[in-house]
């Protein structure tokens, strides 16, 4: 009985492997490359011919001139070859001290009020690559960024508003601000009176 079934077992394994393992992904790749090449290739952001990242993948921003991304547990931070979360549990002392630190740094940097720090800004995302922060986290950073860049708050706030994406169909997901896009937009704004970077005439 088993011998009779061995042939179909072997043949079907390889036949299906070819169909669903090669033909199917090949076909999908072909069509995707044809129809939406930019997205199929990673929604890369190219500035002056150089890839500066992907719209979908967050990156680390340490400078006060930039909006900061969330803490990341991917490698040393936003390492796309080591995606993942902290995997620390709710009663983890390590997680607690990380959060306490992050809160303290927000209090220092952005004059955040303890107890009012947006929950996403001091916690690591699941992927470690979260490209977004919440509108509240962005709002908290506006004053600091504006100060660092010598921009009036409303200009920065307007930029944030422009880069805030609402829910899909007004329903799905949460409102969010793409940090890379926002920071790129910041860089492209003329910098009128920055004390450290005097305007070049």
């Amino acid at each position: 009985m088993l011998k009779h079934q061995l042939r179909p077992a072997i043949v079907l394994t390889f036949a299906l492997m070819v169909i669903v393992g090669l033909v199917y992904p090949g076909l999908v790749t072909g069509i995707a490359q044809l129809l939406f090449p930019r997205r199929a290739n990673g929604s890369l952001v190219v500035v002056n011919g150089r890839v500066v990242g992907s719209r979908l993948i967050g990156q680390t921003f340490a400078s006060a001139r930039y909006f900061h991304s969330r803490p990341s547990a991917a490698g040393t931070g936003y390492d796309d070859t080591l995606s993942g979360g902290s995997n620390l549990g709710p009663t983890s002392a390590r997680l607690d001290s990380m959060i306490v630190q992050a809160v303290d740094s927000e209090v220092r940097l952005d004059r955040a009020v303890k107890g009012r720090v947006p929950s996403d800004l001091v916690t690591a995302s699941g992927s470690g690559l979260d490209p977004d922060i919440s509108p509240a986290s962005a709002a908290l950073q506006v004053a600091r960024v504006a100060r660092a860049r010598g921009l009036p708050d409303p200009v920065v706030r307007a930029l944030v508003a422009r880069h805030t994406r609402g829910r899909t169909f007004g329903l799905l997901g949460d409102p969010r601000v793409n940090v890379l896009a926002l920071n790129l937009a910041l860089d492209s704004v003329a910098l009128p009176h920055d004390p450290r970077h005097p305007p070049v005439h």
């Binding site: 979360g85 902290s86 947006p118 929950s119 916690t123 995302s125 979260d130 509240a136 962005a138």
Partner: peptide, 15 residues
């Protein structure tokens, strides 16, 4: 604009 809750390990876009 604050997702609130327990955001450790969660993505902002999903909430």
């Amino acid at each position: 604009g604050n997702p609130g809750g327990n955001m450790e390990g969660k993505e902002v876009r999903f909430g």
